[in-house]
Design a protein around this nucleic acid. Structure first.
Lengths: 341, 341
DNA sequence: TCTTACGGCACAAACGTTTGCGCTTCTTTT
DNA sequence: AAAAGAAGCGCAAACGTTTGTGCCGTAAGA
């Protein structure tokens, strides 16, 4: 049995050459004669030689591995994003170490710890919406492990991130509704501390103002995105004094929950009340009352872009040029209007 | 700046002790005196010492990393499964390296290669439905990397796997339909080469036979699960001589496609034609015409179980007891009847 | 013919850890 | 009081690779 994997040493011994010669021969180094080169390469093939990556990682202080930390893969946004990340990583011979925080701060911290111990070359993270302290990320600075945040960005200064500008899409969404004749428009937003929520709110207010519509704070409700709280928010909106005829929901899941609640209250969807949301998930194709339009956030592209900038950071680390500039990459969101069937 | 991470050597030098003493002290080894032990541990804390895992991996020939290869995370089944895997892995201080094959054989092979090079301690894989040769998995035997397959199992002998018995759930599904008065029941199945499809078929035939219903081969259609082919299959079923009043679909996605096609043909869902499927995805809660019932496959539990058995294999490798017995773990699927709303 | 150059290879250090073994210096036992 | 044991620590090898440096011999230039 070839239980024992072949090593450089083994090859060297059999060929009566030095280990360094074998190493260089396999790397096609110019200082090795063509004769020995082929002899080495041939024997390596015969013995099924595979370089021991763990040894190389160790020796080079580099693992060609990046860690990805995100709330949950069951959300289509993230599974899309990680595909972008993975494709880009593979293209550059990196692999991805995965960790789901499940929106739990403790888990997030533990994952960061594990990744640090595994000596990942860099980290890609979309923070948990319940994370309030950022020490665990700050700590990584000391270890010189670059981080690129995406989608859910912490409110820290001096960080690299890739995000989708929610404001532009929100404005498009509101304009779309106003074009359709709506005047009283509600919004079911997410946790206020998230940047993306702030942007949604800003877009909402800006678009209303530009159209000379009054901003009613009662029509803008923050939630934790749980079904219960979304139901409650929908209830409040539907029963508020100034009856909204349209609601912009934080994302498709929220929209679907809101639709469901509205139907329980016997409202006619797309008649009494219309919905617009964010994400543009494939499942909305199958639902009874999909949102009229969705703001697309391009998760795949975000993941890809985040990975690209992380690779840049990793490479720039070599020539220890202090990174004085921080990447802030913003993709524009875009309203996708669904066909009426 | 503490750019340079502390090492055992560094600590040893400062304390004028040997490296081995430091190592043992930090491991609470009994042969080290309490005095030096505390001195070492204290300094380690001060210097923010973190063991260099890459060195340890290298030295111990073990990476505490398992590779997970699956078709795509965007399918709810797999994102659920990987959660089970991850939770179990974390519990045992393992991390997971991720790779999506996107049902592409070449990608699958490349991922296997990468994982091998990264010296993962073991592999968890759900094979691509387009994979026809299994050499890349066979090859891993030589390297002594254990594999546990789950969900999509290759037709190889002498492998470990965890799967869900689709036959039992299928029989339950057919019985459910027969109870409801259906007599002519169609099935839209997946690729024949998948074991799970064979089981569905066996369950279908068995259940029909037990109920003394004739088996009509025209009512059982295999597809590649693409929307187009599902449409075509649905068309054939709806227009076959013996009009089926119910259809069992390979999974919820297939069911939703089939429903969509049936509606295009102006069939009344749950009246002219009923659907039952597999998976029990959350999205079916939001759809207009969810299947009447779904066969639950317990992806989280499958992932968990697969990870557990992989860990067992990894541990058993130490005491080089030849594994003569192969794990074949079968969970029972179970029909979940959806509430009528 | 003498110097210079270079092609082709070997030596050895280094990366950070773990661990078997051996060496002291005490303490205990007989 | 001598022998035996134990407690506490150091030495050094090993894991597999990369890479800077040095050496030898042959070929090219003057």
């Amino acid at each position: 049995m070839d239980k024992k994997l072949a090593t450089l040493k083994e090859i060297a011994k059999r060929l009566n050459v030095s280990i360094s010669t074998v190493s260089r021969a396999l790397h096609d180094h110019r200082s090795i004669g063509i004769r020995t080169k082929t002899r080495v390469q041939q024997l390596a093939k015969e013995l099924n030689y595979e370089p021991n990556q763990t040894a190389i990682f160790f020796q080079q202080r580099k693992t060609f591995t990046v860690g990805v930390i995100l709330p949950r893969l069951s959300e289509a946004f993230f599974s899309s994003a990680i595909s972008g990340i993975e494709d880009c990583a593979n293209k550059h011979n990196y692999t991805v170490l995965m960790g789901q925080s499940h929106d739990n701060e403790e888990r997030e911290k533990k994952i960061v710890e594990t990744m640090k111990n595994h000596r990942v070359d860099g980290l890609l993270v979309s923070i948990s919406k319940n994370t309030s302290s950022y020490e665990h990320f700050e700590a990584l600075r000391k270890y010189n492990i670059p981080i690129v945040f995406f989608d859910c960005i912490p409110r820290m200064s001096n960080i690299h991130y890739v995000a989708c500008n929610m404001q532009s899409g929100t404005i498009q969404a509101i304009n779309f509704l106003i074009d359709k004749g709506h005047r009283v428009i509600g919004m079911i937003n997410g946790p206020e501390k998230l940047l993306a929520c702030q942007e949604r709110q800003d877009g909402y207010m800006k678009a209303m103002a530009r159209n000379r519509l009054k901003f009613d704070p009662f029509l803008l409700i923050s939630t934790d995105l749980s079904t219960e709280m979304v139901y409650e928010a929908t209830r409040q909106l539907l029963n508020s004094k100034r009856k909204p005829t349209a609601i912009v929901a934080f994302n498709d899941y929220v929209a679907l929950d809101a639709v469901q609640y509205a139907r329980k209250e016997k409202r006619k969807i797309n008649k009494d009340i219309c919905f617009v949301s964010y994400a543009n998930l494939p499942i909305t194709n199958y639902t009874a009352f999909p949102p009229l339009a969705s703001v697309e956030q391009f998760p795949y592209q975000q993941g890809q872009k985040a990975m690209e900038t992380l690779l840049e950071l990793i490479d720039s680390k070599k020539d220890d040029s202090e990174v004085a500039t921080y990447f802030k990459i913003i993709l524009d969101s875009q309203l996708i209007i669904h066909e009426n069937k």
